[in-house]
Simulated scan of single mutants.
Amino acid sequence: MSAQKYNQLFDEVIKKYHILDNVDQPFKNPFESTSFEHLLYRKSWIDTVQWHYEDIIRLPDIDPIEALVLKRKIDASNQDRTDMVEYIDSYFLDKFKDVKVKKGAKINSETPAWAIDRLSILALKIYHMNEEATRESASDEHRAKCQEKLNVLLEQRVDLSTAIDDLLNDFAAGDKYVKVYKQMKMYNDEDTNPMLYKKK
């Protein structure tokens, strides 16, 4: 499955979300739970909902209590996002486990899943920048500026997609090896966040 296919799936998820355009809408994953597509679909949905959480919490007149509830949702979403990245990396670890790594093989600066995470966010930027570039109520100047930014984002997606495909090909050939460090976030952990464990 190429990065181009990832992009197509991400675009489908974002369009599906915007049919109702509601952060509280029900979620249904159309792919088999054991499939790689299932992981990508779930990842993209989390990112899409969180994108809109981030928009809502920036409302200048938001009720403080509602903002706090929303902040908790964003925190939970961030944890879900990280968990999904680790699931995706686990898929790649298993996929390439039998590859014979060549002598002198190198490690990459980021894992495949974190690169795919950036691709997922890029799909959201492209969707929403396109909205602004074509928004009829906006000025011509605004639309032109957003179109320029959209062109850069589209170019960035081509470059990142190519880099991801190259990385996976390097793994398959044994030119690079997969190594994953689990995220060690401390602020959600009652045993490592002093503000939480002091309350125990």
Rank of each mutant, 00 (worst) to 15 (best):
M1S: 08
S2R: 06
A3L: 05
K5Q: 12
N7D: 04
F10N: 06
F10M: 15
F10W: 04
D11V: 07
I14E: 01
K16S: 14
Y17G: 00
Y17H: 07
D21Y: 13
D24N: 15
Q25Y: 08
P26K: 03
F27G: 00
K28H: 15
N29G: 00
T34Y: 08
T34R: 08
E37P: 06
L40C: 04
L40R: 02
D47Y: 04
D47N: 12
H52E: 14
H52G: 05
Y53D: 08
Y53K: 00
E54N: 14
D55W: 09
D55Q: 11
I56Y: 01
R58P: 05
R58Q: 15
L59Y: 11
D61S: 06
I62V: 05
D63S: 09
D63A: 04
P64I: 13
P64W: 14
P64F: 09
E66V: 09
K73G: 00
K73F: 01
D75E: 15
S77E: 08
N78A: 09
D80G: 02
T82M: 06
V85R: 07
E86R: 03
E86M: 08
Y87S: 04
Y87T: 01
Y87F: 11
I88W: 02
D89W: 05
D89V: 08
Y91K: 02
L93S: 03
K95E: 02
K97A: 03
D98E: 04
V101Q: 04
A105I: 03
K106C: 05
K106V: 04
S109C: 06
S109I: 11
E110V: 09
P112R: 00
A113G: 13
A113S: 10
D117F: 03
L119M: 07
L119D: 01
L122N: 07
K125P: 07
H128T: 12
N130F: 11
E131M: 11
E136L: 14
E136Q: 13
D140Y: 12
R143G: 02
A144K: 15
A144N: 11
K145V: 02
C146A: 15
C146P: 02
C146K: 07
C146S: 10
Q147R: 13
Q147V: 01
E148I: 10
N151D: 15
V152G: 04
L153P: 07
L154P: 00
E155K: 13
R157V: 03
V158D: 12
D159Y: 09
D159E: 13
S161H: 02
D166S: 10
D166T: 05
L167E: 07
L167C: 01
L168Q: 10
D170C: 04
F171T: 01
A172H: 03
D175K: 15
D175C: 05
D175T: 02
V178H: 10
K185W: 07
M186H: 02
N188I: 08
N188A: 11
D189L: 04
E190D: 15
D191M: 14
D191Y: 13
Y197K: 06
K198F: 15
K199A: 08
